[in-house]
């Protein structure tokens, strides 16, 4: 487990955020990396298999910032997900609460319904709104 934010490691009733991210990778078949970043480009936590790169959090923030505007082209007001479909699989970006983004590296065959249910069940922890 790797926590980017020491505040997340304090002993509370909620599990450390990195624990939730590790659990996500272990429980949901097809997920091989997970990272939570702040919407302004700082890493908050990542699972053990994610490389420790500060650039990733900044890239995620910029991508989400642009995606919010791109949603507006279709008349959208709320961005639900950003999907990067590449030759090695998928990168799924989901807003988690008003201040965070969850990034998931997955295979193309991942069960996104199952993944979404898992994330929803831990949304408060991932968003930093619990514990």
């Amino acid at each position: 487990m790797v926590a980017g934010d020491p505040a997340q490691s304090k002993v509370t009733t909620a599990p450390p955020l990195a624990f939730v991210l590790d659990e996500l990778v272990e429980v949901v078949d097809g997920v091989h990396g997970s990272l939570v970043a702040s919407i302004d480009g700082f890493a908050v936590a990542r699972n053990a298999s994610m490389p420790n790169s500060a650039a990733h959090a900044a890239l995620l923030a910029a991508g989400m910032g642009l995606a919010h505007q791109l949603a507006g082209i279709g008349g959208g007001r709320e961005l639900r997900q950003l999907v990067i479909d590449h030759d090695e699989g998928l990168l799924l970006l989901w807003p988690i609460g008003p201040k965070r983004v969850l990034a998931l590296l997955t295979t193309r065959r991942v069960d996104q319904s199952h993944l979404r249910r898992f994330v929803q069940s831990r949304a408060a922890w991932l968003a930093g709104e619990s514990g």
């Binding site: 302004d40 910032g65 642009l66 505007q69």
Partner: peptide
Amino acid sequence: ISTDVVTSGDESDVKAHTTVA
């Protein structure tokens, strides 16, 4: 077209929003 988001950490002491893209 703006990509302003809420700042966090030390940067929030300087201003409330920042451009990310």
